[in-house]
Design a binder for these strands. Structure first.
Lengths: 341, 341
DNA sequence: CGCGCTTCCGTAAACGTTTACGACGCTACA
DNA sequence: TGTAGCGTCGTAAACGTTTACGGAAGCGCG
């Protein structure tokens, strides 16, 4: 005898009553509920998830799909760790668990997602690293799986997303540099078709225009989103005959490789090239010279993701009357020395 | 009509036959199997995991528990991403999926694990960041859940583990520094009770003894495993009246904060203090001066973890006749400039 | 022709839960 | 006293799958 049946037998009541007691249903006496709860903890009873899932057609779990491979993603795992924590703090309120679904480097993300959906492993999904056209969005919409994207996409549709403020970061970066007298400002964007690069680039162009500066395509540097990409970026800049005097980056660890490349040429950030980095992170705080970059609370971002996802799930929507969230997440400038300002 | 039933109806055969065909059982004709397989892909049929799990008592998924919060863990940036990829490449051979289980910072890891076990979410588990006494090991053993620990522990028992070679790293670090003439060598170890610190310290002591050097407890610096911990480490060293001339670190990002602290005092790694770091990572490669540290293949480590875990699962053990794996994972020294050698 | 063996397939039970439904005993009130 | 209503609980079906079991058909062989 196992599971709920054992519990029921122990207490001499029916399994139906035990189930109702545990699930907080009203039609069970306080005394019985108390006995059940005590016995459950005493015997270490935890409901079998497969049984529950099968019966109620839901899994009480939310999936967070991440793509392995650093330069595909544009995000490192300390990024996700922080976000996870925020998401979980929301999910815990509803007895939902978070599972991270790492898509292998050698598997197509859409196919991977389809498998996960088919297995009905989770009730809802958070996807990240959205591409310019992201077929996962169509897939999830068609399958009617509640989801939210961490990152916009140019796939049409009325789906929820939260994205970092790439546009604002580019804009404010340019503003700051122009105020300091720079007029030849480069931008580093990812070499793949991840969507954030396009948003960033649009912000870059718009800001230049607003300041009456010409848009020079040769100042748009396409490199992989990795430390090595930053190193290559430095190489490319040094090789230009008409070098920019400043650059804005859109991936947090590019600065590391760029610093190194500059150092090898006897140059220094802030003095010979003004650099504005992207996300403040543990590494950026200890670079010399200190990187000027943008701060956000990963935990709060995670909380927003969690709440917005729940808002799109019929079961929980009443608790989160947010509609379908489409939100740009603000980032706060933290001045450093790398921009020489 | 849904699921396998719909498939069966479409083909005018029984659901039992469909199931057997899909699961590669022998007692179904080749022709029928062919028809079933075609119809399944055509209709996009994916078996419902809850149904399968309930019936066969297994979930076809492996969990990888990670703890959120950087300085608890001792691992960072892309460490897990790399390992995940290796694990998955093994699991995929057996149609097993990997799910990462992130334990929230505000929840007790053992309680969290117990919940996950109880829910029967996964068939096997990989746990990481093992502590000196790790109750999770007893828990998993008692529950008879196949598992492997990434990291040793002093909890007794005959359980499988794979651990990085902290002992060897300490030993070889000391050897290298002593050969270069150093005799006053400090060691940085974590300030919490994560087990790797004890292994590292033992290796440190043993190596000193072998070289006939005295063990000076004041040279054992306890700091949190984070960049900030490295910064604090630098502070502590500079405050000593009788400073060490060299130091070995046991967490990969300590060097970052340490470099910074030295720079602020006008000092430099390699010249004023010989530093040997721990794991080579994308950041260490771009530090100036380049960090002397140790290399390992995360993917291979993941593969070993996956295979060793499967070896401990009755269902897959025949394919991996490894016994209960207890293995120290080798790391290769990559010389840099930070040790001045 | 009878028998055994093989190949293929259908039937139905089982996995552990949740929940619709109905039953029972009690109180309150006409 | 009859009955409606309420609080509490037991019964049994249902979720989608796998698999033990048995049956039917075909074949070979004595």
């Amino acid at each position: 005898m196992k599971g709920i049946r054992r519990l029921a037998q122990e207490l001499n009541i029916s399994i139906g009553t035990v189930s109702r007691a545990l699930n907080g249903r009203a039609d069970v006496s306080d005394e019985t509920r108390q006995r059940v709860l005590e016995a459950a903890t005493a015997m270490g009873y935890v409901p079998n998830q497969a049984g529950r899932s099968l019966r109620q057609g839901s899994t009480n779990a939310i999936g967070f799909m991440i793509e392995l491979g650093a330069d595909i993603n544009g995000n490192s795992d300390t990024f996700f760790m922080g976000v996870f924590d925020g998401v979980q703090s929301v999910l815990a309120r509803h007895h939902l668990d978070l599972v991270a679904l790492p898509c292998p480097t050698d598997e197509n993300p859409t196919a991977y997602l389809q498998r996960m959906i088919g297995r009905r492993l989770v009730d809802g999904l958070i996807i990240s690293a959205t591409h310019r056209k992201d077929p996962r969005i169509d897939l999830l919409s068609k399958a009617r799986i509640p989801f939210i994207a961490l990152g916009r996409s140019q796939t049409p549709g009325d789906y929820p997303w939260i994205d970092l403020d790439f546009d604002g970061v580019a804009r404010r970066g340019i503003d700051r540099l122009v105020s300091a007298g720079h007029s030849r400002i480069a931008a580093a964007v990812p070499s793949n078709d991840i969507n954030l690069g396009f948003v960033f680039l649009d912000g870059y162009k718009a800001a230049l225009k607003r300041h009456g500066l010409p848009y020079d395509p040769s100042l748009v540097m396409r490199v992989p989103s990795s430390e090595l990409g930053g190193y290559q970026l430095g190489h490319d800049i040094l090789a230009m005959e008409n070098r920019p005097t400043a650059i804005i980056l859109n991936y947090e660890l590019l600065a590391l490789g760029l610093y190194r490349q500059l150092a090898e040429a006897g140059l220094q950030a802030g003095r010979d090239l003004a650099i504005i980095g992207f996300r403040e992170n543990p590494v950026s705080r200890f670079m010399s010279p200190r990187l000027t970059c943008f701060r956000l609370s990963l935990r709060d971002l995670g909380i927003a993701l969690g709440e917005s996802l729940l808002a799109s799930m019929p079961t929980y929507a009443d608790a989160y009357p947010l509609g379908t969230v489409q939100r740009v997440w603000p980032m706060e400038l933290v001045p450093g020395e790398s921009d020489g300002i």
